[in-house]
Simulated scan of single mutants.
Amino acid sequence: MANGSTLPRRALGRQLRKLRERAGFTQSAASRVAEISPQSYGRIEDGRQTKVTDLGLNALANAYETTDEERRLLLDLAREIRAATASGGGWWRAYADAIASGFHHYLSLEEAANWVTSWQTTVVPGLLQTRDYRQALTWATNPDQSPEEVNRTLDVAARRQDLLNRPEFHFEALMSEAVLRYTVGSPTVMAEQVKRLIDRAAAPNVEIRVVPNSETRPVGLFSRSFHLFSFPPLPSSKLQEPPVAFMEALTGDLYIERRDEVEKFSREAERIRQVALSPSASRDLMLRIVEE
């Protein structure tokens, strides 16, 4: 399974927590039923990487007095986790030396998603960056990196962009005009970057919309940049994973999974769409910027 085990692990953890709380068990009691440590059981409910056996899941299903359908769902999710582990994981494992700590989780979500919405106020989204633009950003943020390390980072960025060649993957880029006006690298680098955006926007699964500087309603400015991931149903269990929001910060990345909090980001994205130019008007604006 190309999307790795992140989603089925999250789904299994959520299902076990729901069943445990319904049955009135503590995590400590559940760990005794499954014959694992409380820490290991906690990691399972948190969706983190921990060995999960059918024997342990059947014991928990018995203790939680689940229905046959609920038991099958747990076992289906465990099967999906094992299949993903056997496949060797995501492509980014080969670039472990070039990926920042914790970013593999972002890559697994991105790879698993079938729809990503990105709101950007400062930089072009990674999936749409040219190599020269990415290189300028990398040198600015990591000036001590060797040329070899920089090239590995650029290779990861290029590999990520293969997602845009998947017809079932849809990317919606919402960005402020300021993103197009900042001079990253040089005027030539920026001109080529904006041309790349124009080319990418011609694809049926990529939509780029710009909030112009002339817009008087400051929608999106206080929310900062963010990403929204939506996912297709899991292959075997057909369980629908809820969306995830992501914000990148200097002191650490933030993944938002609580439904009410993610919904706030969804509403903010809709407000931004209301003030953004249409795709065709955004293209006209980008053409003018290239000419300038």
Rank of each mutant, 00 (worst) to 15 (best):
A2W: 00
G4N: 02
L7W: 03
R10T: 04
G13L: 06
L16R: 08
R17H: 07
K18T: 07
K18L: 04
G24F: 05
A29R: 11
A29I: 02
S31F: 13
S31N: 12
V33Q: 12
V33C: 08
S37R: 13
P38C: 05
P38E: 08
Y41W: 13
Y41E: 01
Y41K: 13
G42E: 10
G47E: 01
Q49I: 01
K51P: 02
T53V: 03
T53H: 07
L55Q: 03
N58S: 09
A59M: 04
A61I: 07
N62Y: 07
Y64S: 00
E65N: 02
T67S: 12
R71T: 07
L73Y: 00
L73E: 14
L74I: 07
A78Q: 15
I81W: 15
R82T: 15
G90M: 11
R93A: 12
S101I: 10
G102I: 09
H104I: 07
S108L: 00
L109E: 10
E110F: 00
E111W: 01
A112V: 00
A113D: 07
V116I: 14
T117K: 00
S118Y: 01
W119L: 01
T122K: 03
V124I: 05
R131S: 13
D132N: 08
D132T: 08
Y133T: 02
L137F: 02
T138S: 08
W139A: 10
Q145M: 14
E148M: 12
V150Q: 11
T153E: 05
L154V: 01
D155K: 04
V156Y: 04
Q161F: 06
N165R: 04
N165S: 05
N165I: 01
N165V: 01
E168Y: 03
F171M: 02
E172L: 03
A173C: 00
L174C: 06
M175C: 09
V184E: 02
V184N: 05
S186V: 13
R196H: 09
R196D: 06
L197I: 09
R200T: 14
P204V: 03
N205Q: 07
V206W: 05
E207I: 09
R209E: 00
V211C: 09
G220R: 02
G220T: 04
S223T: 10
F226S: 07
S230W: 11
S237F: 00
S237D: 07
K238N: 05
L239E: 06
P242G: 03
P243L: 02
E248H: 03
T251R: 03
R258D: 14
R259C: 09
E261Q: 14
E261V: 08
F265P: 15
R267L: 15
R267E: 15
E270G: 10
Q274S: 15
Q274A: 14
Q274K: 14
R283Y: 06
M286C: 06
V290I: 10
E291V: 09
E291I: 05
